[in-house]
């Protein structure tokens, strides 16, 4: 019995079923930073209707699958983003919006915004543009769905394996690291 469920072939079939469910049911955390949060309402309402793809808003990190970093991320917000990300349940995905999350964008010499998002939390899909329009956002979601189906969206695993590296980067930027104790 145990062997029947644990051999590689049945695991593969199970993964296909799981990934199909995961890719067609993406709950996005209703959390917006910067200017890109204004692109989310048109994306999920009548005009562009992201619910066709099973994309839906979730109110708390516990229920969400996708964390959208919509635009520039100040150091103060980064602290909250890390907490929200760590409270989400595996598997979880991160999408970076706009050039601000890729290389700082127009805030490249600002003292208060981070320049590379993937140094602090793992990013599965980047959408470039300033800001990306809802079409681009939906294209990004479709790309994320492809990655999930192929089993390549493994940022959450990467984060757990390289936690020390991420913590080091996070603590370099956040001077006063006072995170409350919580279990993930």
């Amino acid at each position: 019995m145990n062997r029947a469920f644990n051999d590689r072939e049945s695991q593969k079939i199970l993964d296909i079923i799981k990934n199909f469910a995961r890719k067609n049911s993406l709950f996005i955390l209703a959390y917006g930073t910067g200017c890109g949060a204004i692109e989310i309402p048109p994306t999920i309402t009548s005009r562009y209707d992201a619910e066709r793809f099973g994309i839906r808003g979730a109110a708390t990190p516990r229920q969400a699958d996708v964390l959208l970093i919509t635009g520039y991320l100040s150091v103060k917000t980064l602290k909250r983003v890390i907490r929200a990300y760590e409270q989400m349940q595996d598997p979880k995905y991160v999408m970076g919006f706009g050039s601000c999350t890729i290389n700082g964008g127009m805030y490249w010499d600002s003292y208060n915004t981070i320049k590379q998002l993937d140094k602090y939390i793992p990013v599965d899909v980047y959408i470039n543009g300033c800001m990306p329009r809802p079409e681009a956002v939906i294209a990004g979601f479709v790309k994320l769905q492809q990655l999930i189906q192929q089993g390549k969206a493994l940022g959450w695993k990467h984060y757990k394996e390289n936690l020390e590296w991420y913590r080091q980067n996070q603590q370099k930027v956040i001077k006063n690291w006072r995170m409350p104790d919580y279990n993930w």
Partner: peptide
């Protein structure tokens, strides 16, 4: 809107059950 397929809630429940 076009809306999700009517089996969407099955997928949601299946996804929640396949959380690691």
């Amino acid at each position: 809107r076009y809306g999700p397929p009517i089996y969407q809630n099955f997928l949601d429940i299946l996804k929640f059950w396949s959380k690691e």
